[in-house]
């Protein structure tokens, strides 16, 4: 009897599944994503534009309701908090309130730690300095995850201009990374990446110190951080970051080393067109010449003076023809690096 009933239920389930599949083929309904990454791809149309953001947010919210604590949850939270609430709605407070509610559903300790990092980041971006400090102290007390050398903390502290917190955590992070490098069992192949992380921590420490009035120490730290720089503006390795030249340039200008500030900010401002660097460059130019006159000409002159030559390379094009980088000379060219997805 029981067995028969189960068979009945099974037939019912299979029948429903079949019907749903038929329905899915015949009519277009808003699909609830099984995986937000896939959904993200689905929502990009051929022109590279996303669908209606409200519609997309609704899809992702539905996903979150069904998956309150999975490996995709934090990524979904991050999308909704940063792209939707902060980006589209321009409402950081709503983003923070939203993440706080959803965080309580994240039971897995590792996922919860990821979620807390997201909250830290959002508090930093919203400039909620005091609340950021309280959260960090609470996490330290509860030992939910190791915050002492967590880069999300000092990055958020810098964003919120909480310089004491930024100094404390970037210093701890830099020290910890030195310990890592000095560990005899440390994997040599990781040296480059750990050194970059340390440089990023030193940069934040330098910037925090300068804002706390410790400019001499800051300048020494910038110099130390700059030692690991591997590329100039024609390569972007993640390090040095855009902040490096900007912060270093600002402190050079502040301490009266105007010429150095100008050469530090030139590539970032002129070649990369970073508006923040351009602003400081304009200030430095005025400090150097006593006037803003001629700044536009100065920018163009600088551009041609510091511009690098196209490096040599020889490859095939898609038609099988060999191309020498020198062949590109003589014509203005837009050279783009990408990957097709």
């Amino acid at each position: 009897m029981l067995n028969l009933r189960w068979i009945g239920v099974l037939i019912l389930i299979l029948g429903c599944a079949g019907l749903l599949q038929c329905g899915g083929e015949n009519q277009k309904t808003a699909a609830i994503p099984q995986n937000p990454d896939e959904d993200f791809q689905m929502t990009m149309d051929a022109d590279g534009k996303t669908e209606d953001p409200e519609e997309k947010a609704a899809l992702w919210l539905a996903f979150l309701e069904r998956n309150p604590s999975t490996g995709y949850t934090v990524g979904t939270l991050q999308y909704l908090a940063t792209e939707y609430y902060m980006g589209l709605k321009n409402d950081p407070d709503a983003a923070i309130a939203f993440v706080k509610i959803k965080l309580s559903h994240l039971r897995d300790p590792e996922l919860n730690a990821e979620g807390q990092r997201l909250l830290i980041e959002l508090l930093g971006e919203a400039g909620r300095s005091e609340e950021l400090r309280e959260l960090v102290r609470k996490l330290e007390r509860e030992a939910e995850f190791v915050v002492e050398d967590d880069e999300s903390v000092y990055r958020a502290a810098i964003a919120a201009e909480n310089w004491e917190l930024a100094r404390e955590f970037s210093e701890a992070a830099a020290d910890k990374l030195v310990e890592t490098l000095e560990d005899p069992e440390f994997d040599e192949s990781e040296v480059e990446s750990v050194e970059m992380q340390r440089s990023a921590a030193l940069l934040s420490l330098a910037w925090a110190k300068s804002n706390l009035g410790e400019d001499d120490e800051a300048l020494a730290l910038f110099e130390e951080a700059g030692k690991t720089a591997q590329f100039d503006y024609t390569g972007f390795s993640g390090w040095p970051t855009q902040e490096f030249d900007l912060y270093y340039g600002k402190v050079l200008l502040k301490t009266g080393r105007v010429k150095e500030a100008i050469s530090r900010l030139g590539p970032q401002g002129v070649i990369l067109g970073d508006p923040a660097a351009m602003e400081v460059l304009a200030e430095a130019y005025k400090a150097e010449t006593g006037s803003s006159d001629g700044f536009t000409d100065f920018v163009e002159e600088t551009r041609h003076r510091i511009a690098r030559e196209l490096p040599d390379f020889k490859v095939f094009d898609y038609d099988g023809e060999e191309v020498d980088s020198a062949d590109l000379n003589g014509k203005a060219t837009l050279l783009a690096f990408w990957f097709p997805t």
Binding site: G235, G238, L310, L328, T333, L335, F337
Partner: peptide, 28 residues
């Protein structure tokens, strides 16, 4: 070309090159 010659690790990255082969503008 991308990684070794230009050191690009962030995508897309684009360069504007003038007729004399000088990189006058870069965009990440």
């Amino acid at each position: 070309v991308v990684r070794k010659v230009f050191g690009v690790r962030s995508f897309p990255t684009s360069y504007l090159i003038d007729g004399e082969g000088k990189i006058l503008y870069a965009h990440v």
